[in-house]
Design a protein around this nucleic acid. Structure first.
Lengths: 179, 179
DNA sequence: AAAGCTCCTTACCGATCGGTAAGTTTACCG
DNA sequence: CGGTAAACTTACCGATCGGTAAGGAGCTTT
């Protein structure tokens, strides 16, 4: 049920998703949906924590065993990919969707999850770069790259998480040699 | 007028933006808006070509003088930054917004612009990587990084385009030495 | 002055939105 | 069986959406 709602929110965005459609795709009636989640905002929040907690757990678990900054960045990607692989490749969108009503609990919560992911990446980057603004910049660029890779990956079902990770390492190999 | 509409679409997304709000912020009445742009979709298309044509022109102009793949990637970023600087830093969102109604002329047109940008980046990457899937992957990652940098830049008005470009080159310098 | 024309607004249309009241089915207990 | 409480649906609410009809203002022409 949360899974269906998450799908719809990812497809249409917050404003574009309708409770009617979500209820229909859950094969229940709208009042039932409102029985479990009392409003659209609460439903989105539920989807957000559902996806966000899982994603952050996957990333932090994956990055826990990494020591060098390089390993940490690659482990972050690996955690992201494995979460997306075993859950749904499009679900990250519920955290990184950009058009939710400002000044709501929803906006606040998404920022919270983004900050936690940012913290992981920024910590890794601060082991490589000195200037704090450079760290910020590089961390945001890396996260954006990850976002974009996931978006691309959604349309490439034949590529597995392992293959994606392997290609990523292969592409970065000539660079990583420098570190 | 196109500028105001573009702002609103970037802030709220396609579904979230209302013609009422756009008209109000243009300080005209809604029927006037419909006189010039006959529907919401047409208005969005107008914003899209308005931003898209300018952005692609800026990128292609900037990348024209670059020869090595490395220079081409950096020139793409420079073109992007200079366009964003002299127009509006948030406007790229009208091309990379992800929640527009599927199977419409709008969706088709955004894909067209994304493809043109992708072509520039992919061409540069194909000078560095051999495997075509690696090229795809790297190009999408780079574009995502650029998107994310722009999003970050919106909230850092004190950073100029020149400084951003300089920092980017500085961060990439140790890597670029390998190429 | 009256007619005509352009420009623009108020006021409305049906559809759909988020959300709910009230009633109907189902199932269980005596 | 009868009664009752939970589970669920139909049908609706006001608000807002994209989009439009109808009718002023202001200006020129005759």
């Amino acid at each position: 049920m949360l899974e269906v709602a998450t799908e719809v929110f990812c497809e249409r965005g917050y404003a574009g998703a309708s409770m009617n459609e979500i209820a229909a795709r859950c094969e229940i009636s709208k009042p039932m949906l409102y029985l479990y989640f009392e409003s659209k905002e609460k439903l989105y929040l539920a989807c957000l924590t559902f996806v966000g907690d899982g994603l952050i757990a996957a990333i932090e678990k994956s990055v826990a065993g990494a020591h060098s900054p390089t390993e940490q960045v690659l482990a972050t990607a690996a955690g992201l990919f494995s979460f997306a692989e075993q859950r749904d490749r499009a679900w990250w969108g519920v955290i990184y969707a950009e058009t939710m009503p400002a000044d709501t609990a929803v906006a606040e919560a998404t920022i919270g999850y983004r900050d936690r992911i940012y913290a992981v990446v920024a910590r890794a980057m601060s082991g490589v770069l000195d200037d704090p603004l450079d760290v910020e910049l590089a961390a945001h660029a890396l996260i954006g790259a990850g976002e974009s890779l996931l978006r691309w990956w959604v349309d490439r079902p034949e590529v597995t998480a392992a293959e994606l990770q392997q290609r990523l390492v292969g592409i970065l190999a000539p660079f990583l040699g420098r570190l």
